[in-house]
């Protein structure tokens, strides 16, 4: 299982962050940055970042900060 915020999502081998956001969230494309097990990962790296079983993912809303 993977925890996305407070939600549990089923894990599968080879799963990437891009897969996770597309499969588990209706609004996955809203997120440009997530925190995966404490480390920030940005959208350009979602497709190449593997998610381990038991991972904790926090969704970081970044829209108009700065």
């Amino acid at each position: 299982m993977i925890k996305v915020g407070d939600r549990e999502v089923a894990w599968r081998p080879g799963m990437t962050l891009a897969d996770l956001l597309e499969e588990a969230l209706e609004d996955g494309d809203f997120y440009a940055v997530v925190r995966l097990d404490g480390k920030l990962v940005s959208r350009p790296n979602f497709a190449t970042t593997k998610v381990a079983d038991g991972a904790q993912v926090e969704l970081i809303p970044m829209v108009a900060g700065g």
Binding site: F30, A32, R43, M62, V63, A64, G65, G66
Partner: peptide, 13 residues
Amino acid sequence: HDEAWLIFLDMVH
């Protein structure tokens, strides 16, 4: 950038 920071809204989203 204190007036407007629109990079993410514009370019990313």
